[in-house]
Nucleic acid binder design. Structure first.
Lengths: 247, 247
DNA sequence: GGGGTGTGTGCCACTGAGTGGAACACTTCA
DNA sequence: TGAAGTGTTCCACTCAGTGGCACACACCCC
């Protein structure tokens, strides 16, 4: 319809995307995963190398520092993270659990920052990690306060199951989002991973659009969600406030 | 000599690089800064948009979340940062100053992580920021322990002045690096910015190659470098040790 | 009003840059 | 000794990307 897009950039993103699973890949492996000709990968990797987008690791390749450099300049991250940082520290200190900061990207959630607690059990989430919005606490918190077309898109794509208890029923999701919208807090019970529960609350811009969300997560046995709710909600409101103040 | 490289990727990196100074740019501004035709920028920005490498901000453009996502997967960052984090926290607590973690990228230094102290004065350094190695404490610490050809390349490119007291004399730099190599610590006196001093120490891999460097920085009046030296050195050695242990 | 000058967007003939098959040099393993 | 993997190089073909041009707006000032 709208295409034809730029094929070279498509191919390049295919190559970079191949590093989703493994951190270091050879030319042949890249060619196999991307479906590109080996010579194409070879040549392309060469120029990406010159730009620091890729780096050599022996004879194989790795994502390069230039990507990190560019990634640190992304505005969506910068403002929100800066505003949230002190409150995330407070929240971790108060709850002694893991604190997450995330934004919505299309129908996915991307984690901007994670404050872990040495005392708390390690969780599998990673900074820069991506999960379907409907399967996470922060995702549901943001969806509940997003325009209808965002939810439509989520439903259109289908509620992919990522854990045993992921919500896959559209009616169930819509119902939950209604109560989330009323309470300002979303709970998650092992929907993104086994044993993990969390309470999340949205961060709003001055114009009431969604900027992101924070959450407190822990293991289902050890964490009493109801006790976390007010703290998460309070922190989210505080971040929203400082976000508005600095405009 | 070795080229011809891929022109499309070159142009794309030109566009992304244009966001060095400003965070949000229009098609016309991009065309002007990159020297590309407006139609080329327009089309290219469109496909970058589809990949999330760029995002819209009204009618203008911004670096996109996908870059952040990819940047967080860069191996050079991942391992070192993880190993260094706890020691950086200790160092900040012990010195009540700003702690930096950096790696060497060509002849530049790139900051991987910065631990600021609310009590300490804010410094201009930024995560993902880039500075010439010869102009910074962490840079000198790493150069002193790098193979000769790295220093050769630094000298070949010329010692660019970034602050009033930046070292621009090759002989002076070489002399300093010799004592750095002997002491395991590099000092910086307002060479990267006015009023800023720092003590830095290199982090080495098991094979004695340079992995990165950490530093303690502060304002020249308030910070006694000599008192910082042992702490920085100790932390750097500790990080080197845990880095080696996890191989 | 009009007529600057700034946007963003769309079109399309031209051509040279990117493609990928094939061939090569090396290792590794059997 | 060969088979199967790797990375690298070459090069004729052609199709994808280019950028000049033109258009649709939105300003602001005379």
């Amino acid at each position: 319809m709208t295409e034809p897009p730029n094929a070279v950039i498509d191919r390049m993103m295919l190559i970079l995307g191949a590093f989703d699973t493994d951190r270091v890949l050879s030319v042949s492996e890249l060619a196999r995963r991307t479906g590109l000709a080996k010579s194409t990968v070879h040549r392309m990797a060469g120029t990406l190398l010159e730009h620091g987008v890729l780096e050599r690791s022996g004879v194989r390749f790795t994502l390069g520092l230039r990507l990190f450099e560019l990634g640190e300049r992304v505005p969506r991250k910068l403002g929100l993270r800066e505003a949230a940082l002190p409150y995330m520290a407070d929240l971790r200190a108060a709850t002694r659990q893991t604190v997450h900061l995330a934004v919505l990207d299309g129908t996915d959630v991307v984690y901007l920052e994670i404050f872990r607690n040495p005392e708390a059990p390690p969780l599998p989430s990673r900074t820069g990690g991506r999960l379907p919005a409907h399967a996470t606490g922060v995702g549901k918190a943001m969806l509940a306060f997003s325009p209808q077309r965002v939810l439509d898109e989520v439903l259109r794509r289908g509620l992919r199951r990522v854990a045993e208890r992921t919500i896959t029923d559209p009616a169930m999701l819509t119902r939950q989002l209604r109560t989330v919208r009323a309470n300002g807090v979303a709970n998650e019970y092992e929907e993104s991973g086994a044993g993990i529960v969390c309470a999340a609350s949205p961060i709003l811009n001055i114009d009431q659009t969604v900027a992101g969300a924070i959450s407190v997560s822990g293991l289902s046995g050890r964490l009493d969600l109801r006790r976390m709710t007010p703290a998460v909600r309070t922190a989210a409101l505080a971040i929203s406030r400082t976000l508005g103040a600095r405009t």
